[in-house]
């Protein structure tokens, strides 16, 4: 307080300035302190602990017992349920991500055309993404696809056979994929922003050259959107690997039927909290981390072949 007062009257001596700088830094650190505490206490420390636990046998009640790489060995060589969860998850990632992105892009292109009420539609279409991950929506989804639910009623109404959506091991995962597709909001907004950034002249020029709508889409829209697509793909792939709530609710918490919806994180959760194998679950978490990192790296590596940056061509 005193320092500031002298500041205004006389030009500060060099020492004063540096002290003031130090004060500024201190203030800054104080401001980020809550985050730093949270990061260390809730992220860094638990992460380090889970790394340690992944090499132990730990049932949460006793104390952890060092077993070296035994958890990983068991996971890769003995646990066929683990591989089933990997299969289900890969299938889910490879279907849910494209379904969601295609939905998002289509809706974004429609919204791009609309001028009246665009804000309203944007908001309404974003709502599923806000609530889609919640327990309530998963419960609703389960009702919709149940034996006598709305979807089967619709199928019957148009003369088709009702399907055992949640009872058939192959169909059950598709209800999760559809749920994921329905939550297209955030990639949609990003696509929309990307679409708005495409210069209109490109379309006009193409129009003059006689290009039809499809040609414009393939030759202009898609290439110009590739940076945005890259971003969305990376984000959605990560999210898909981490999907948990819907499969937990829809499959009664078990990955039913016949482990058809046993997503990786669900199996991880079951190991931790149902079989009380916290060490094994931690090991699974670290493998998942490595796989996600690898996938992200591969997508980035591949991007030089298909992502088009405007600045390069100039």
């Amino acid at each position: 307080m005193l320092a500031t007062k002298t500041d205004t009257i006389v030009p500060p001596a060099p020492g004063v300035r540096s002290r003031r700088k130090k004060n500024d830094n201190l203030t800054g650190y104080l401001f980020i302190l809550p985050f730093v505490i949270g990061f260390i206490g809730l992220t860094l420390f638990p992460t380090a602990a889970s790394l340690y636990l992944s090499f132990t046998d730990y049932n949460m009640l006793g104390s952890p017992h060092w077993v070296g790489i035994e958890n990983f060995r068991q996971m890769f060589t003995q646990d066929d349920k683990y591989w089933q969860s990997v299969r289900v998850t890969v299938q889910y990632v490879f279907t849910a991500v494209p379904v969601r992105l295609v939905c998002a892009l289509l809706i974004a292109m429609l919204l791009d055309r609309i001028t009246a009420g665009a804000g309203f539609f944007r908001t309404v279409l974003y709502v599923p993404s806000l609530i889609g991950g919640s327990v309530a929506v998963s419960v609703m989804w389960k009702q919709l696809f149940s034996d006598k639910g709305a979807i089967n009623a619709l199928l019957t109404a148009v003369g088709l056979h009702p399907l055992p959506w949640l009872g058939d091991p192959h169909l059950a995962l598709w209800t999760l994929v559809l749920l994921a597709g329905w939550q297209f909001g955030s990639p949609m907004l990003i696509f929309l922003a990307g679409l708005k950034n495409i210069p209109r002249e490109l379309y006009e020029a193409a129009g003059v050259d006689g290009a039809n709508a499809w040609q414009k889409f393939v030759r202009i829209t898609l290439p110009m959107l590739t940076p945005v697509i890259l971003f969305n793909v990376v984000m959605q792939v990560i999210q898909a690997f981490l999907a948990f709530t819907p499969s937990y609710i829809i499959s009664n918490g078990h990955g039913d039927p016949l482990d058809g919806t046993l997503l990786y994180v669900l199996y991880l959760f079951r190991n931790a909290f149902e079989f009380f194998k916290m060490g094994y679950a931690s090991a699974m978490a670290w493998v998942l981390l490595a796989v996600i990192a690898l996938c992200t790296a591969l997508i980035f590596r591949s991007s030089s072949y298909w992502v088009h940056y405007e600045s390069e061509s100039e």
Binding site: L53, L61, P64, L242, A272, I292
Partner: peptide, 27 residues
């Protein structure tokens, strides 16, 4: 940033419970 946050989320969530476990048993 978000990407990284997402990657840490699962181990963090699992470990969080585990860590309280350590504290409990040593107590």
């Amino acid at each position: 940033m978000m990407k990284r946050a997402a990657q840490w989320l699962v181990p963090a969530a699992v470990a969080l419970v585990a860590v309280t476990g350590c504290g409990g048993s040593s107590g």
